[in-house]
C-alpha cells in the first residue's frame, strides 16, 4: 500500500478546501414548505433566487440588494428591470428552467437558496449541501401558498423584511376579504365562467389546482376549463363546449394573442367574444396572474373585470398606484399604469 500516504494527503487537502460551517457563527431556524427545519445564519445577506416570480417578491420585501444569483427569466421581465435595474448585473446562475450553473452559483457565495417546492429537492441540492448552502423550499400553486411563500421569504431575508411580509399578507388578505364580502353572496348562476389562456401561438389553458383557479373563484367567477394544472393544451372544440363568458389572455404577448382570438372565425360564436369580454391580463414586475407579488392586485382587478357593476367604487388605478408606491417605492405615471394593465411593457 505504497499509495496510502498520497491518498491521505489528497483527502486531507480536499477536506481542508471544503468550506466549513463556522461553529462560532450564530444560527437560526426556518421551517420550509416541505416541513424541513432549515438552519440559517442569523443575518442573511446573500440569497440565490431560482424562482422567477419570487425575485419581484424579494424586491417588494426590500431585500433585492441581497440577491446574488437570479434567473434569466427574471431578468427578462421589463417591469422588474425598470423597478430594479441592478437585476441585470446580478449573475443569472439559473436558466429559464430553473437549473443552475453550479459553478456560477457557488461563485456567487449565497447564504441561502430560495426555491419553489414541487414535491422534491432539486437534483443539484447535494452539490450545494456540500458547500453548506441551505435550500429553503416554498409552496407553489395556490393563493394561500403564495402568502406562505411571501412570509417564508421575509423570514429568510431578516426581521425588517419579515415585517414587510406580514404587512403585505395583511394587505392581501384584506383585498381577498373585500372582494369576497361581495362575491361570496353570488349564486352559481351569477358567476361568469372564465377561460384563462396560458401561452402564445398554441391554445393552452389554466385549469384547477392553480393560483389562477383560486383568484377566479375569489373574484366571483368559475374557471371554465375542466382540466387540472397550468398550461394544458385543449382543442378549439372543447373551448366552444365550455363556451366561457369571459376570456382572459395571460402571458406575453397578450395583446397579440388577444387580437388573434378576435380575428379567428372559430372563436366568433364564443360568448366572451360576442360580448366583447376578451381581456388581457396585466403584467408588471411579474405576470399578475401567476405566483407573483402583484397577485394581491390581481384579485381586485379580476373582481372588477368580472363584476364591474358590483365593484363600481373599486379603483384599480388607485390601488395599483398605491401598491407600487408602498411596496416598490415607485411613483407610476398614467402611461406606465396603462402599460401594466395592458401588458405592453414599460
Amino acid at each position: 500500500m505504497r499509495m496510502r500516504p498520497l491518498w491521505l494527503a489528497a483527502a486531507a487537502l480536499l477536506a481542508s478546501s471544503m468550506p466549513q460551517p463556522s461553529s462560532a457563527q450564530a444560527t437560526r431556524q426556518v421551517t420550509d414548505a416541505a416541513g424541513r427545519v432549515v438552519t440559517l445564519p442569523v443575518s442573511v445577506n446573500r440569497i440565490a433566487d431560482p424562482w422567477h416570480a419570487n425575485n419581484a417578491t424579494v424586491l417588494m420585501l426590500g431585500g433585492a440588494d441581497k440577491i446574488v444569483a437570479t434567473t434569466v427569466q427574471a431578468q427578462r421581465q421589463p417591469w422588474l428591470r425598470r423597478l430594479y435595474p441592478r437585476i441585470d448585473q446580478v449573475p443569472a446562475a439559473f436558466n429559464a428552467a430553473g437549473d443552475p450553473n453550479i459553478e456560477t452559483l457557488i461563485g456567487a457565495r449565497p447564504d441561502v437558496i430560495l426555491m419553489a417546492y414541487d414535491g422534491s429537492l432539486p437534483k443539484w441540492s447535494a452539490a450545494m449541501e456540500a458547500y453548506h448552502v441551505p435550500i429553503v423550499l416554498m409552496p407553489n400553486s395556490s393563493l394561500a401558498g403564495l402568502m406562505t411563500t411571501v412570509r417564508i421569504t421575509g423570514q429568510v431575508l431578516g426581521a425588517r423584511e419579515a415585517e414587510v411580509a406580514e404587512d403585505y399578507v395583511r394587505y392581501f388578505e384584506g383585498n381577498i376579504r373585500r372582494v369576497r364580502s361581495v362575491t361570496s353572496r353570488l349564486a352559481a348562476s351569477e358567476r361568469p365562467t372564465v377561460l384563462h389562456t396560458a401561452s402564445a401561438g398554441i391554445l393552452t389553458v389554466d385549469g384547477r389546482d392553480t393560483v389562477i383557479d383560486d383568484w377566479i373563484t375569489v373574484a366571483g367567477g368559475r374557471n371554465a376549463a375542466g382540466v387540472v394544472g397550468n398550461g394544458r393544451p385543449v382543442t378549439m372544440e372543447q373551448v366552444a363546449a365550455w363556451d366561457p363568458d369571459v376570456i382572459i389572455v395571460g402571458t406575453a404577448p397578450n395583446q397579440q394573442s388577444r387580437q388573434s382570438i378576435l380575428d379567428d372565425p372559430r372563436w366568433r360564436e364564443i360568448k366572451a367574444v360576442k360580448a366583447g369580454r376578451v381581456l388581457v391580463n396585466p403584467t408588471g414586475a411579474y405576470l399578475w396572474d401567476r405566483h407573483s407579488a402583484e397577485a394581491a392586485l390581481q384579485v381586485l382587478w379580476a373582481a372588477k373585470m368580472l363584476h364591474p357593476e358590483l365593484f363600481r367604487s373599486l379603483d384599480i388605478k388607485r390601488e395599483t398606484f398605491d401598491f407600487y408606491a408602498k411596496y416598490f417605492h415607485y411613483a407610476l405615471t398614467d402611461d406606465e399604469y396603462a402599460s401594466i394593465v395592458n401588458a405592453t411593457g414599460p
Partner: peptide
C-alpha cells in the same frame, strides 16, 4: 433553451408533439 418558460417554451414543446388544433 432561450424560450420564455411561461409561454413560449410550452408552445414550442406542444407544437413539436404535433397537433391539428390550429387548423383553420
Amino acid at each position: 433553451y432561450v424560450a420564455d418558460p411561461e409561454s413560449r417554451l410550452p408552445a414550442i414543446t406542444y407544437w413539436l408533439l404535433g397537433s391539428l388544433n390550429g387548423t383553420t
